[in-house]
Design a protein around this nucleic acid. Structure first.
Length: 476
DNA sequence: ATGTTC
């Protein structure tokens, strides 16, 4: 993106003043280098979102923003139901409640190294991966309804994990207001055999070593020490969330027309929060969020079984689980007033600052863990949320490196098998059913995650705590 | 992201 087309308001804040149908400004948080690397279409999408009814404050983009369906990936926008605000399926994304969880293992990298190959092999066979992957769990209609309303709490009650896990999950592992009746039979059918599966694309389970620490106090609070091993799990609501997104995009196009909402882009289909379609979507989206939370909880259980077999001393404790594709009703300050707002975060992570009452007490002094997944073979990061008044973007931060090129382009540039060999030379074992998928996820098909994280920190969105280096990656 | 095209 050409920086000259934006108004620079600080070293890390770029604005688009309202013109035409924009109701609020656009704001992009990034360094100049990240702006230059950003797709031109991000600006158009930030502008389009700023035109939607009931949007408050500004249409925001995080440092890793790239072009997406309707909303940019890395987009944050909040809506006020009292001001005719809307909810948009494209503002959440197809992979509803896609997110990351991080587990400590209590192991040192040196203990893991001799068994690394076996660990990769065993994890690959225990955790189903790939397009259309099915697992050993099959839900009937009644169990499906319990899962969609119970989330990770349901999974723990079924024996997949412990009650202690729940304190370290966004919303204590269960999103309230879920409506199984707002989820179609087709969506439920698609999910029947997909619980505890990773899926494909950029989803993965990665075993990592804690590298550099940047904030020792926060690292201590999060239980992270150098050379210790952690597990990162990145996945979402599988076929169920995708089906819900597809169906509600259609009904929202109708709803927007009926309510006289002028859409700058048909991909921005939305429904008033105070409408039957808007309420049904919120209920279905929350059900999909519970599906994603239960899914990550079950995968955690599989990972614990594998580590217990190979490393009797291991104890996989949940550090945190947070979504980066969702719409949440949250209370935020707006012009000095506390307001309940519907915050869309699409490819953006919630990042509550120190003192937030929703955080577990262990983390309250330092802020929410913000889990940033890198691309395959590169680093991941743990950050801590800020409460910085310079960035009024509803306590949000970036979610990953962000793609630098399309899947098609990546597929042209790299060969899966060769990438796997190169990574192995670096001591990183990748197991995947798809050579094409590996090529599409090539490390250089993404932006430099370190630069994105530095940009997020410099802008004041979150503080760097620890860098994580990959050892074993199970890839969809 | 996705039973990678209803």
């Amino acid at each position: 993106m050409n920086p000259a087309t934006l108004t620079r308001t600080s070293a890390f804040e770029w604005r688009i003043e309202p013109t035409g149908n924009m109701r609020v400004p656009g704001v992009i948080y990034a360094t100049e280098a990240l702006i230059q690397a950003m797709d031109e279409r991000v600006r158009d999408q930030v502008v389009n979102v700023a035109c939607l009814p009931g949007i408050v404050s500004a249409s925001y983009a995080m440092p890793d923003a790239h072009w997406g369906y309707g909303f940019p990936i890395g987009g944050v926008a909040a809506f006020d139901a009292e001001e005719g605000g809307v909810v948009s399926a494209g503002g959440v994304g197809f992979d509803i409640s896609c997110g990351v969880r991080c587990l400590r293992t209590g192991l040192q990298r040196a203990e893991l190294e001799p068994l690394k190959e076996r660990l990769a092999e065993t994890l690959y066979h225990r955790v189903p991966v790939g397009v259309g992957s099915h697992g050993p769990i099959h839900l009937d209609d009644k169990q499906m309804e319990a899962m969609l309303t119970g989330g990770a709490q349901w999974a723990v009650e079924r024996g997949w994990g412990s009650r202690d896990d729940l304190r370290f999950i966004e919303a204590q592992g269960r999103i309230t207001g879920a409506r199984a009746d707002a989820v179609s039979a087709k969506a439920k059918k698609r999910q029947r055999n997909e619980m505890g599966t990773l899926g494909s694309g950029n989803h993965y389970l990665e075993v990592q070593e804690v590298g550099e620490l940047y904030d020792r106090e926060a690292a201590r609070a999060f239980g992270l020490a150098e050379h210790e091993v952690v597990v990162f799990i990145h996945c979402g609501s599988r076929g169920l969330g995708h089906q819900i997104g597809t169906e509600y995009l259609k009904s929202m196009a109708t709803s927007a027309r009926q309510h006289g909402i002028e859409l700058p882009d048909r991909e921005l289909a939305c429904a008033p929060l105070r409408s039957d379609t808007g309420q049904a979507y919120l209920g279905a989206m929350r059900a999909a969020s519970n599906c994603a939370l239960a899914n990550r909880q079950i995968i955690t259980h599989f990972a614990r079984e594998v580590f217990a077999e190979l490393f009797p001393a291991a104890d996989l404790e949940l550090l945190y689980d947070v979504s980066h594709n969702t719409c949440k009703l949250e209370e935020h300050s707006l012009n000095g007033e506390r307001k309940k707002l519907f915050v869309h975060r699409k490819g953006a992570t919630r990042a509550f600052g120190p003192g937030h009452p929703d955080l577990p007490e262990e983390y309250r002094a330092v802020g929410q863990p913000v889990l940033i997944g890198g691309s395959m073979g590169t680093a991941s990061h743990v950050l801590a949320g800020n409460a910085d008044p310079r960035v009024p973007s509803f306590a949000s931060a970036c979610h990953g490196a962000g793609r630098a090129m399309s899947r098609r382009q990546a597929h042209r540039n790299w060969q899966g098998r060769q990438l796997l060999e190169e990574l192995r030379e670096q001591g990183i074992i990748v197991r995947s059913p798809s050579a094409k998928g590996v090529a599409e996820e090539a490390p250089h098909a993404y932006k430099d995650v370190d630069a994105v994280v530095d940009g997020a920190e410099e802008a004041g969105l979150a503080r760097k705590v620890a860098k994580l280096k990959p050892l074993v990656c199970i890839k969809g």
